[in-house]
Amino acid sequence: MKRLLLVAASIALAASVAPVHAQQADGRLLALSCLNCHGPGGKSPGEIPSIAGKSEDWLKTTLVDFRDGKRTGAASTVMTRLAKGYTDAEIDALAKYIATLK
């Protein structure tokens, strides 16, 4: 019973801070495009770095740095261009989902 109340309370809380609607950023769907370069499940078969096994914080910081031009240089290639295509909410959703890839 106690547990049920807790669940109910957390659902109410979740609903109050993050209303669920159809157009909310879908981290998994957003991330699927990444895998064509970073490899199935985020594990790269070549020189492009893997994105599996990275923390949510690292992913978010890295994407924001690419977007804001703080991470440049030869190795950044397409990411400085691609990261600009995502909103803050989308970067959050991407980082959250990709961090689940182990």
Partner: peptide, 10 residues
């Protein structure tokens, strides 16, 4: 080099 990696990943 990334092109090679891109091909393998795709």
């Amino acid at each position: 080099r990334y092109a090679e990696s891109w091909y393998k990943a795709n």
